[in-house]
């Protein structure tokens, strides 16, 4: 008897302290929103997410908590996003990996398990080499890779089957070579790969150009070309592949905001508008410009189409590289 009283008191007391901060019924959003990031704190995706979250907070008038769910080449975070309740209070920063992982048998999840809200960034792949390395142009790189025996050269920048691996393998295929003519050395990201390249133990880092920026500015690395239709504003000296060797090949990594499948269209609309305002805010635009990251806007519908289109494209590359399961 005594314990039951104390227990109900306890529940009452604690219950009260938990209940008070919740507001009465109101329009969405009425409580803090969680934004799941599938990559580690400190990386490019994380920084993008934190900036957009800060801008979004001002738009929505609610706290937006950035939560890193890292590891497993993005599987863990993307899973957490898809498994959340589709109530609009758990969103995620979805990245291009969602179009690669399921082809490799790492997860059952595809882009169809999400409600697209908006695309906020696109970074094209570049070709970075050591400043004192054997290549001085894309042309000489292609020639040497073709003439030397397979697996003479090494490249790195993501894990096995990651975006820069597939981008580079696609480039080799585009140039009429086997996808594994250059050995891919898996790494935890582009920063450790740039370090390895500076230490002289790998030859090529096909990451986005901004990721190699500090090493380029330090004179340790140089960017030969970007796999994009146009030059980047932040790196006007780096030619496109078209200009360098006449190839139309363009590929990169996109990032966007998405929620779990089955969200209320009204909530999606609210969010789409808020994200658009956040995207156009000075906070976001200034940050992206300073970092050198590319900005690209697509609303919910277009973003959905982009994911479908990219999914098919990466499916083909994964198969040609021989990683398909």
């Amino acid at each position: 008897m005594k314990t039951s009283i104390t227990r109900s008191h306890l529940a009452g007391l604690l219950g009260l302290s938990l209940l008070l901060p919740l507001p009465a019924m109101a329009d969405y959003p009425e409580k803090p929103i969680t934004l799941i990031v599938p990559w580690a704190a400190g990386g490019g995706t994380d920084a993008t997410a934190r900036t957009i979250a800060a801008a979004l907070e001002e738009e929505l008038g609610q706290t937006v908590n950035v939560v890193n769910r890292t590891g497993g080449s993005g599987v863990v975070g993307h899973t957490a996003m898809a498994m959340a309740k589709p109530d609009g209070y758990t969103l995620g920063l979805i990245t291009g990996e969602i179009n690669m992982m399921h082809w490799q048998g790492l997860t059952q999840l595809t882009y169809q398990d999400y409600t697209p809200i908006a695309q906020i960034n696109y970074d094209y792949a570049g070709i970075q080499v050591a400043a004192d390395g054997p290549f001085d142009s894309v042309e000489s790189l292609v020639e040497q890779v073709k003439s030397e025996p397979a697996r003479t050269y090494t490249a790195s920048g993501t894990g096995q089957g990651g975006v820069w691996h597939l981008a580079f393998a696609g480039f080799l295929l585009d140039q009429g070579m086997e996808a594994d003519r250059v050995s891919w050395i898996p790494s935890q990201g582009s920063a450790p790969a740039m370090t390895e390249m500076a230490a002289g133990s790998i030859d090529i880092v096909p990451s986005s150009v901004p990721e190699g920026r500090s090493m380029i500015e330090a004179g340790k690395a140089k960017s030969l070309a970007i796999m994009a239709p146009e030059r980047l504003d932040s790196f006007p000296d780096v030619p496109t592949l078209k200009e360098a060797i006449g190839s139309d090949y363009a590929i990169g990594e996109w990032r966007g905001i998405a929620g779990p499948k089955g969200m209320d269209p009204a909530v999606v609309e609210t969010l789409e508008k808020a994200v658009e305002a956040a995207y156009n805010s000075d906070t976001y635009q200034n940050f992206m410009a300073k970092q050198g990251f590319g900005t690209e806007w697509r609303g919910a519908d277009d973003f959905g189409k982009l994911m479908a289109e990219q999914d098919e494209r990466f499916g083909k590359i994964v198969e040609q590289v021989g990683l398909a399961k």
Partner: peptide
């Protein structure tokens, strides 16, 4: 809720 569970366990 986390708070109630922790309180009960500690008690």
């Amino acid at each position: 809720g986390a708070a109630l569970c922790m309180a009960a366990s500690m008690l």
